[in-house]
């Protein structure tokens, strides 16, 4: 039968090439009702539509605990980022979606606890590096430390990388929390 080059390509209908294809990292603050299932809705949206989650944290933020803030770090092309925001907006218990990356300057922080098991020189070196990074010692044994570090995610990344070189490590990270700089206060 007569055929065109595209006929035999299943899924070809779904490729799109328009606008800016650069993949960027965006940080969102999503203000939601603190009700059961709301986090599942957000996570389900990301997995169901194939969006990327780099980091996600959630906690209540209003005095009466009725409102939560979900901090999400994601990546995508401009079109995908727009889609994520629009899709999040569609969820019924969502008050607001703030694209902190787009809105301007903001502060991102992360907390990590890193256990390093090391002896002798490596042990001393880990302590020296922790000092340089302003990490605190949260726990110690004769052959291990638990360091507590906070800062922007890159700083935490580099600290963990250095620790890995010094011994067996175990890492717990809080995920990114973020807030806009300046004197504007988000009412929730």
């Amino acid at each position: 039968m007569a055929n065109s080059g595209t006929v035999g390509q299943p899924g070809a209908a779904y490729t799109f090439s328009s606008g800016d294809e650069t993949v960027r990292r965006h940080t969102f603050a999503v203000i939601v009702d603190n009700e059961p299932g709301v986090l599942a809705r957000v996570i389900g949206l990301f997995s169901g539509r194939g969006y990327n989650i780099e980091s996600l944290t959630v906690s209540t933020v209003s005095a009466d605990e009725s409102v939560s803030r979900i901090n999400i770090v994601t990546t995508g092309t401009e079109m995908i980022i727009e889609q994520i925001k629009a899709q999040l907006h569609r969820l019924i218990p969502i008050h607001d979606v703030h694209d902190l990356t787009l809105d301007g300057a903001h502060v991102e922080r992360e907390l990590a606890l890193i256990k390093v098991r090391a002896k002798d020189h490596a042990r001393r070196e880990s302590l020296r590096i922790a000092d340089i990074f302003h990490a605190k010692v949260a726990d110690t044994t004769l052959d291990s430390f638990v360091f507590q570090i906070d800062g922007d995610p890159e700083k935490v990344d580099s600290f963990i990388e250095l620790m890995r070189a010094l011994g067996d490590t175990e890492v717990a990270r809080s995920g990114v929390i973020a807030i806009a700089r300046g004197n504007d206060v988000l009412k929730v």
């Binding site: 799109f16 328009s18 606008g19 889609q83 629009a86 569609r90």
Partner: peptide, 11 residues
């Protein structure tokens, strides 16, 4: 009426 329908497939 649905902002998520806009720019989803076609710019």
């Amino acid at each position: 009426i649905d902002a998520s329908s806009i720019n989803k497939n076609v710019r």
